[in-house]
Simulated scan of single mutants.
Amino acid sequence: MSQSNSLPSVATVRDAMTRPQLKNALSGLTVTGRTVAVEPIKAAAFYSAIVLPLVYLPMLAGGISTGKLTVLVGLLLANAAALVLGHDYGSN
C-alpha cells in the first residue's frame, strides 16, 4: 500500500513564503484576534451601562442604609466602568 502525501514539505512552504508575506499574514491574524476578543467585551459593557441604572435607581428611591451604601457605590463604579468600556460599541 502506497500512501500519497498531499502536504507540501517544510522546505517548500518555507521557500514559498517570504518574510514580508509572513509578517503581513501574522499582523492580519493579530488584528482579527483583537477584534474577536474586544468586541464582545464592548457589547457587554454597553448593555450593562444601560441596565445598571435600572438596578440602582430603585435603591436610591427606597433610601440608603449603611449596608446598602457599599452596594450602591459598587454599582455606580461598575456603571462608570461600563460606560467607559462600551462607549464606542457599534460605531464601526
Rank of each mutant, 00 (worst) to 15 (best):
I64L: 15
S91H: 14
G28L: 06
S65P: 07
T32K: 13
S27T: 06
P40W: 04
L69H: 11
G28K: 09
V31N: 05
S27A: 10
G86H: 00
L75G: 04
S65L: 14
V71W: 07
A11P: 00
G33K: 10
P53D: 03
S2I: 12
V36A: 13
R34L: 14
N5A: 04
L76D: 03
G63C: 09
V55F: 15
P8R: 08
T32H: 15
K68F: 10
K42A: 03
N92H: 15
G63D: 08
S9C: 04
Q21M: 09
I50G: 05
M59D: 02
A80L: 11
L60F: 13
V10S: 12
L77T: 08
G63Y: 10
G74I: 07
V51Q: 10
A61Q: 10
N24F: 15
G28T: 06
A82N: 02
N5V: 05
A43F: 04
Y47I: 06
L72Y: 01
M59N: 00
M1A: 15
Q3C: 12
G33E: 11
I41N: 01
M1Q: 13
S27D: 06
D88V: 07
A80T: 10
A81L: 13
S4F: 12
S65Q: 14
G28V: 04
I64V: 14
L29K: 04
A81H: 05
G62N: 09
V84E: 07
S9E: 06
V73C: 05
M1Y: 15
P40E: 01
T18V: 04
T18W: 03
A81Y: 07
H87W: 12
S4I: 15
V84T: 09
P58V: 09
I64N: 08
V36W: 10
A45L: 00
A81C: 12
N92K: 14
R14F: 11
E39N: 06
G63W: 09
T70N: 14
A49H: 00
V31A: 09
A82H: 01
L22N: 03
L85H: 00
A80I: 08
A80V: 09
A82C: 10
A49N: 02
M59V: 09
S4P: 08
V51I: 13
A82I: 03
T66K: 13
L77S: 10
A44H: 01
G90D: 02
G63F: 09
Y47T: 08
V13N: 01
K23H: 10
A82Y: 02
A11R: 08
T66V: 15
L69S: 15
G74S: 11
